[in-house]
Design a binder for these strands. Structure first.
Lengths: 204, 204, 204, 204
DNA sequence: ACTTAAGCGAGACGGTACGTCCAGTCTTCGT
DNA sequence: ACGAAGACTGGACGTACCGTCTCGCTTAAGT
């Protein structure tokens, strides 16, 4: 997202190199303000520059505008790709699903996804990029589902991609936006997985 | 959302009454810009006033700020509460689910939801209001599900609210944001309903 | 120099009229800073706006840039067209010449002409404008000289325009720039006039 | 004006000596931009560095700021001290006066003086320096005038310094700023000298 | 030949001011 | 009293330069 790396890795660019300290200070300032729960429109370039102790030009040298900076900052918070125990299909899915949309300790609250969602919706580049970020996580769930199909636990004709969507979308909307206020979120992951696996139809 | 109605319905306010033409022109301007696919942040009060041929104060007299205006405008596009034929549970659900997040002719593209999503996420008032708007639609689906439970077609212990979430969330995210690009959207409603009803587990 | 007057004097512009108070505050701020002896390049639009308690846009609505504003402010200091007693040619000329380039009480120091000189030199529009400003003053001297010629006191073939230049240029350069540091300025006006009248050649 | 020479002339500084090529390139860039008629405020350090193909630091190593650089560059254009034939007082004065403020071939137009005038007015150091530059030229005229006095051609009580001012100021203002647009400049030097010598009073 | 020391082009650094745009408010006139 | 028009203060925008500071690289002089 930042300036592309040099084509020739041997030849470094002329002139004074960019300061890693400044870069970090900027990203930290952004994450700090998000974590402080500041309204997203209050996170201005000027306030970021002031908080980071950095000139505005130093920001604009790296990011073309505020949105890219915020997105990049959030993206820099590396979320570890989750691992699964492999005990059972249900347990693995609950483990994975319960992590979707969960606020993590660095990007300390749900504001982060609130920032990202609209940008992703509008910015095709960002959308593509975001897909790349979550694809590894999606891949883990995909693997679990595929193994379920191979083992005969899941239906042979299961559309894995639709399944992924059905597992993640409820978690995302509910966690970031409290989409349906009548839903109790304490056991949502289990409920989603169980409904997904068992279906709604009455047995027999 | 607009200015509260007069306390005494008999006594009309003195002076020149507000022009319905202005109000309509403002709302039309907003909807027009949304339909034109303008980026949401380009829809400024000034541009709205210019397009509507109206003074800024005339807008502020009616709405407290830009977000409320946009939301109100979008909300004014009356979406008819869908009706169901009542033939079968599956057919009814597909009818309802396929309408979720569908762009309609007045708010002519998916931009509308893109505008609303972040606002809803951040603005508690708006969130409450939005619940009220979609609650009637939700209620229809809720009714269908409840009848399914009563008839014994659906599990007795089905959590209807979670079910609603599982039916709508995938449609919303996929339709407005192409959340999972690997998903084919041509039969998504059917797939979501069938997965929801039948579950993913292999029979037997 | 400010926005041109309306073509039709009857029809006033729509909308809120510009505030005379703001305009005065801006001009006062500029003159104040000049009088304070601030370096000319320290008189920035931002500092003017702050001192005048005015938004920057209010300044830019009236003047296209800093230079025009400063010039206009200085120009607004109405210098009274001098009058002459008419006693004698010599006395009248001394009266007039001694006023050229003299700092006056409102534009309280020589900085003013220092500001204007380079602008005049570079900006043709300003040059034209400045000519109009000083023309009335020049006209008074011109009248005195012409009467001198008519009365036969001055040479019949005197080039009045060259004469004006010879009377004013030494005063301007010496007063604003101390052009020749070896010149004693205390009786400069008298000396210039006497040299001009009597010439340098030895009598006889 | 450049960095002071070493205290001990024998001991040259260690390290790589400054490049004469760079120095020349910088000065040439400045003179070129002036000659191109660029507005003085467009001649920035950055543009100079770019045009000269030189780093900014290389400029700052030699001159403390833009003004000094511009002045130094202009000053480097050596104007030859004029010589006089000594035929007659009038002819000598016309020779000298006609050269005042005349654009020369290197500093190719009147812009140069336009650049210098305001700086001189504001910067006392520069003022002193400028006096030194023009003093030799002034001295020639001073010599001619003094000889005129000694020979009895000019009045015994002539104030030579005031005379210098009266001869040069009209030429400067008219040549660099077209001070009085009504003045025909084609014979200005002759007119000034003749007026100066003969005075304006009618004979007899 | 090798070290030392300053020069070099390049360009990033923290800043300041620019001139523009919009927010939300206020003030005018005409309806 | 509402209408439009548009001026008001305020503040962020993204750009341009300032004068300073690294970078890796020459270029000499003194070992």
């Amino acid at each position: 997202m930042t300036t592309a790396a040099a084509a020739d890795p041997d030849k470094r660019a002329p002139g004074r190199p960019r300061s890693a300290r400044s870069e970090q200070a900027i990203v930290d300032a952004v994450l700090g303000m998000i974590a402080d729960g500041d309204a997203i429109e209050k996170i201005t370039i000027e306030s970021i520059a002031a908080r980071a102790g950095v000139g505005k030009a130093t920001i604009y040298r790296r990011w073309p505008n505020r949105d890219e900076l915020i997105i990049d900052s959030v993206a820099s918070v590396k979320l570890p790709v989750p691992e699964v125990a492999g005990e059972s299909l249900r347990a693995d899915l609950i483990t994975l699903v319960s992590q979707i949309g969960r606020p993590n300790e660095q990007a300390r609250n749900g504001q982060v996804m609130n920032c990202l969602l609209p940008q992703i919706a509008r910015n095709p580049e960002l959308h593509t990029w975001y897909q790349k970020v979550i694809e590894p996580r999606r891949d883990v769930t995909r693997g679990v589902l595929r193994r379920g199909v191979e083992r005969g636990e899941l239906k042979q004709d299961l559309d894995v991609e639709v399944a992924l969507l059905m597992l993640s979308a409820p978690m995302i909307l509910q966690r970031t936006m409290h989409w349906n206020p009548a839903v109790d979120m304490s056991h949502l992951a289990e409920q989603v997985v169980d409904n997904f696996l068992g279906g709604a139809l009455a047995a027999g």
